[in-house]
């Protein structure tokens, strides 16, 4: 069972209390973008077997979106952070790197 701590209200919520929102830090393309950009944004999402950054919503709690760093191969959770971040926080990245020395870093 997946348990994520909501960075806003501090509740350790298990997954039935949360809604998944897939890839975090997406660049959203608008009108005038190329077919390649739309394809990349809408369909060609990251799908790593390992470290992944995702959006989640505390749906049956405070209702807010937040971000989480998780390993898709083991379900280990590295940490959660506010949705207002444009990249994973440096301390979280360092923590992941310590646990996964082969991780190529956030791209």
């Amino acid at each position: 069972m997946l348990i994520l701590e909501c960075p806003y209200c501090g509740v350790k919520a298990e997954e039935t209390e949360l809604s998944p929102g897939y890839e975090a830090h997406l660049k959203r393309y608008g009108p005038g973008s190329t077919p390649e950009e739309f394809e990349a944004y809408m369909f060609a999402r990251k799908n790593p077997k390992g470290v992944h950054f995702e959006r989640w919503r505390h749906a049956y709690g405070c209702g807010k979106w937040f971000l989480a760093a998780r390993c898709t191969a083991t379900l280990e959770v590295f940490g959660t952070y506010p949705a207002q971040s444009s990249a994973p926080p440096a301390d979280l990245q360092a923590k992941i790197k310590a646990k996964r020395p082969n991780w190529e870093g956030y791209k």
Partner: peptide
Amino acid sequence: TDGFNNFTQRGSFH
């Protein structure tokens, strides 16, 4: 199906 990327061959309990 689970609503999140997952490579462990087991699904969520709920």
